[in-house]
Design a binder for these strands. Structure first.
Lengths: 344, 344
DNA sequence: TTGTAGGCGTTATCAA
DNA sequence: TTGATAACGCCTACAA
């Protein structure tokens, strides 16, 4: 009842009186076999209950169909959603994904990469940001990064700059007297920095009163609450009676601010307009649906996998990896909801 | 500059005048080599820039160190968090994870499993629920499921029954006049069903007035809002002036209810007490921190991997897979927050 | 302490 | 349309 031993091409060959080669061909180029032979083999497979062994195939032809992924964490929905979409591309490309989480430190991340390389991955997608793109490029394998420093490697990023502008424009369009952007201190080399410059440029061009507030947010919810409370207290004092348009670096933070105001006033006061970033579920599910600059997560994921797959193909056809990395840019999508538009 | 060809044990052997065997031993049992030899080889490795190839090793010794994972989706934080924790066990066990998402239909899930088996995974962790445990058991490989039907396979689940009781007890302890549980129609065979029976049993034992409301929730936020609005309207009419204790099947739903009430009244009225389930970030970040019956996600993940690893070990030592599946049960943790305790 | 030889289950190359 | 044979890169007896 339990055929302990695994069935191999050899067994099938013996059983059918064909050679191993023919069995192999049945799988890789069936049409090169006589119809009759195909039938015989196909029946034998069922009879013997054959299960394929891709490891042996890899060793023989070098194609693992593995793509490695390194994500920093799965707490923020941006990451879990990107991962979700990447994994879903299995249906279209057939690549399997070996996934590592964590960006504790460079050393452990290097270990992940070493491990992935040892398993002969054909490509790599990186979202964590502890290892420089310069070092990644040295791996010399098909690769794409998403929303991280990408100087020396192919990448897919949201057009954060435009996103920042859109947020500012939306707030300006609602006659805010002062525009405020709240963010954590951000490395100018990562794409997300564009949100800041975009916002700032728009305000400057239009001569709008604005402020950038860099605080150590995104560490803990309680911390964020305390920081935002302080900011609100300060704003209320300095901009009493003025309409404040606030753009926050992500939806969770925006929602936290919204909740804070709502608890204080029992509603969102008219002199506040709020915009978040990501268009994650959080923005829709907030007590007042939040306007948000959306990242097209599905497209980010698809383009990243596509980029890697293209490189894999190119390499197989002997074309070398292009010397200058490709950087794809995905448009942000402004989603207007009640937190700026008011109730309908 | 680009050594196109890959370095193998053969190359190192030639370079060092040892045999392949000795090189292999350097990796698997270095102490069996003379110190001098170790030094020579280690230097050669650097000189030649050797990169190990685990695929070849797998073919030779049969150990892939792969564990397959099938998750239904990553939208609900329960799943992304469990996945996160599972992946993190790499640090302790060293197993690598091949991950598939999606529970569209049985056929595609079977394809995932076939693919995983073809890659010679040593174990499997299943969270999706389209394939019966009976069928899973037939795979005859080390396996554990998490929070799904588990009759014929090892599993790790939260003690949902106790969770339901705890929720009811919490509400009862705050002098609610009527206890209400809102859930989607649930299959009695999945662990989450226990939330319902636990709640119900507690109410019955104490002779508490209570109601179970099964609605088609969890499909879309807008749908949930509509359903909850209807429920609230109805409750307000039928239980005017009475204190209503409401236990919802998950935190997102609880938060949606909370928001609805808060918008209606500008605060959470005293005659409402709310408890969610999961203790996910959503509960902490809600406009009023939500009490919740917490799942110990980290423990669920760890126990699941542990269970699989144990079975793998057992199998290696020739012990057969136990005939009767092990079902581990993890205690829920009641977290009291403002939505039941009031402001402090 | 080190080496020889065979095997793991496929695919690739040449023939027939 | 089919086969024989040699890879693929490592591990594991068994020997020395």
């Amino acid at each position: 009842m339990e055929p302990k031993k695994k069935i191999t091409f050899d067994d099938i060959a013996k059983y059918t009186n064909f050679s191993k080669t023919t069995i192999s061909r049945y799988f890789n180029d069936p049409d090169s076999l006589a119809e009759e032979s195909q039938r015989i083999i196909s029946e034998a497979l069922v009879k013997l209950n054959y299960k394929e062994n891709k490891v042996a195939r890899i060793l023989a032809n070098g194609q693992t169909e593995f793509i490695g992924i390194i994500v920093p964490e799965l707490y923020h929905r941006f990451f879990s959603e990107v991962l979700n979409r990447i994994l879903s591309t299995y249906e279209t490309y057939g690549y399997k994904f070996l996934v590592f989480v964590g960006d504790r430190n460079e050393e452990s991340e290097r270990r992940y990469i070493r491990e992935l390389m040892a398993y002969q991955i054909e490509g790599l997608i990186v979202l964590s940001h502890t290892i420089s793109s310069r070092e990644l490029a040295r791996l010399q394998i098909p690769m794409a990064t998403i929303e991280r420093e990408d100087r020396y490697v192919c990448s897919v990023n949201t057009d954060n700059y435009t996103g920042g502008r859109l947020a500012a424009e939306l707030l300006a369009g609602h006659d805010c007297d002062v525009l405020i952007h709240i963010n954590s201190p951000t490395d100018p080399h990562i794409p997300a920095y564009g949100r800041i410059t975009g916002f700032q440029d728009f305000c400057r061009e239009r001569g709008l009163e604005h402020e950038l507030l860099f605080r150590d947010v995104d560490r803990s919810h309680e911390g964020d609450q305390a920081i935002l409370r302080e900011i609100v207290d300060d704003l209320e004092e300095r901009y009493r009676g003025k309409r404040k348009g606030i753009f926050l670096s992500n939806d969770i933070l925006a929602s936290t601010l919204l909740n804070l105001l709502f608890r204080r006033y029992g509603r969102l006061p008219d002199d506040y307009k709020i915009v978040g970033f990501d268009d994650s579920p959080t923005s829709r599910e907030a007590i007042i649906p939040l306007s948000s600059v959306g990242q097209q997560v599905d497209r980010l994921a698809h383009e990243a996998v596509g980029l890697v797959v293209d490189q894999i193909k190119a390499r197989k056809e002997g074309r070398p990896l292009s010397k200058t990395p490709v950087h794809k840019v995905i448009d942000p999508v402004l989603v207007r909801r009640e937190s700026t538009e008011g109730e309908r």
